[in-house]
Write a protein that binds this DNA or RNA. Structure first.
Lengths: 360, 360
DNA sequence: TGTTGGTGGTTCAATAATAGATTCACTGCT
DNA sequence: AGCAGTGAATCTATTATTGAACCACCAACA
């Protein structure tokens, strides 16, 4: 009959953190207190109480505005690929991502568990800024995952991972001269096809509502859209591109500049399903009817689009197939298979909806 | 990074007592609770909580006036050797559920994994029909989960589980005379509050757009809404309730019957966020502007609502807090803790949006 | 340059767990 | 019958923990 040493949660966390420190799980800096509180399933106050003990032991040294520095000498670089975890980077809380993305991340999590891996989600805007080196350095130092999955990745982020040669997979498109394994929809073909559909319905003034951040997929979309218009036999067709950010006001502004001009477009391709919602409601406020006054096509699919009237014409893709492809590539990466070529981009099916009409 | 299994002192004691029992430290009878409380350095209440768990596992058998008898090995069929999985029932593929539901199921999955459980999702309409006995019989027979979580549950389903005494937790409201552990939002209070908001803004002809299926939460909503109107000081206020199914056409029909009558409502509470989308777009098609012509309130929250213009007034709730509460109750169920009372229903915060306006 | 977003530091109210105590009903013993 | 020991059921403090605000600080961005 042994006695339990310290039974408060804080002390238990302290014990655990001590052993993790000794193992060299973190080099340089501990994860932030807020992150620890999430991964350890304890409140920040409790985590702080535990850290207080480590600080008293001289194991860590908190620095205001920076973090908790690991004070011991650098442990041998433990290659903890035995942890069998995979990290995924997302820019925002998963609840604010598009539902479809959340769904395939969910599927990915399940499939990886079957393979004996755990998926850890790392959310933060700091990884997506123009110079993410510092934030990424710290992240990689703090979490020794077997591989990383990049979603909605920026060019700087891709370059950083390509240079570091950290095992990583881009869930999305890569930028022109970056060679990382990746898998994505064929946005170029999608938007070329969308332009074709609208031209065939008689529209001549087309517009693409695109994200300003110029992610690889958005760049591809733009190129495909312009190609679709310029290579058409209709020489009088014009393509305009309007940019917006992720907030609603920004979409409203972009639409205002589009429709306040003399010859406003009669057909619109929206590259983001949230932006589609904003677009539909802003147009309704302006008294424009879909599809009588303007035709809409959504590049992205998401479940909630099915509840709109009229139903948006869009390109449908199941989350399951996407997740399976990602897992396939990921397992190749984890097993260090020699053949690490990216699968061909996915071309989803076009689902016609009531949001497009023929222009007389 | 491993997690401490269960951090309450009671659970720690239970673990310790279990191993001591297995080692055969005591034969026949355990030391008295007062003695244990002294040797284990814990209060008698805590010791009793631990013993409660052992009793639930069939390891000991308390006898009044004598003590806690050590039962031989009479534990085989109990949960101990089961697969340690939890099943969750949903009516539709998870991609078609509301994003918020998918989110908290996701959180639930994560939290359970930390506790050493796996979450299995069982999707099928057959469990939600009017007489689901056969389907449920087969399901339970095929999957020996430690516990079940019921989402969007029907009355028949709840009755079946209550009768079978299968360990289960209702994520949602229970029907009046069913006693199952459950956790939900306080829909009654929400809709009462919504009615109050609209009345205070000068509206007198209110309507609630509700699901036809009459789930417990929807029944509560209806009651709260009617209460909110009938108990108001405005004697001229009227409440109408229109029913719809899950498809878009059904919502459109319900709206038609509401607005084709002589005195259509000027304010509408929509109890489902998908239905809110349909409603907003149908109203736009009819040329009604929100909020100038009609005020809207959404009972449910979902991320995509933030992309609408004007932003819907709604009741916000974070998926994390909901999932944590569910996990808490679930662990109580799995550990057979004595206190199996349902937590108080959650009252989310009202977030005013541009979708409501004062009626002169 | 000011702004923004991430840090640790601090405080606070609400809640849950635990301690400590009392009373009760029951058992076996004298 | 009386008694001492048992589990059962309460109750009230006290403490631990949570969750959520703030603040001051730091670095990157525009």
């Amino acid at each position: 009959m042994t006695l339990i040493p310290h039974r408060t949660v804080a002390s238990q966390l302290a014990v655990q953190l001590r052993t993790d420190l000794k193992k060299g799980t973190w080099r340089g800096w501990l994860p932030s207190e807020r992150v620890l509180s999430r991964t350890l399933q304890a409140s920040r106050n409790t985590v702080r109480a535990a850290l207080e003990q480590l600080k008293a032991d001289g194991l860590i040294e908190p620095v205001r505005g920076l973090g908790n520095r690991v004070v011991g000498k650098a442990k041998p670089p433990i290659v903890e690929h035995q942890t069998r975890t995979v990290g995924v980077l997302i820019p925002e809380p998963i609840g604010r991502l598009r539902p479809l993305i959340a769904l395939w991340i969910d599927e990915l999590k399940d499939l990886l568990i079957e393979e004996g891996y755990r998926l850890r989600i790392h959310e933060g805007r700091q990884y997506y800024q123009t110079n993410p080196a510092r934030a990424l350095d710290r992240l990689i130092g703090q979490h020794a995952h077997s591989a990383w999955v990049l979603t909605l990745s920026s060019e700087a982020m891709q370059r950083w991972f390509a240079r570091r040669k950290t095992p990583c997979l881009v869930a999305g498109s890569t930028y022109p001269d970056i060679t990382l394994p990746h898998y994505d929809l064929d946005y170029r073909a999608i938007c070329r096809h969308a332009a074709g559909i609208l031209l065939h319905a008689g529209h001549r003034r087309l517009a693409l509502l695109n994200r300003e951040s110029r992610r690889a997929g958005d760049v591809d979309s733009e190129r495909g859209f312009v190609e679709g218009v310029s290579r058409s036999p209709h020489r009088d067709a014009t393509a305009v591109i309007a940019y917006h950010r992720d907030d609603v006001d920004s979409v409203a502004r972009a639409l205002r500049t589009l429709f306040d001009q003399k010859n406003p477009p009669t057909a619109l391709v929206v590259s983001n399903s949230y932006a589609y919602l904003s677009t539909a409601s802003v147009l309704a406020q302006r008294g424009l009817r879909v599809p009588q006054d303007i035709s809409l096509i959504s590049r992205d699919d998401d479940p909630f689009l099915a509840s709109l009237v009229p139903e948006p014409a869009r390109y449908r893709v199941g989350p399951h197939s996407f997740a399976k492809k990602i897992v396939g590539s990921l397992l190749q990466l984890l097993n260090r298979s020699p053949s690490l070529r990216s699968p061909a981009p996915l071309l989803p099916k076009f689902a016609a909806g009531g949001s497009t009409a023929v222009r007389p």
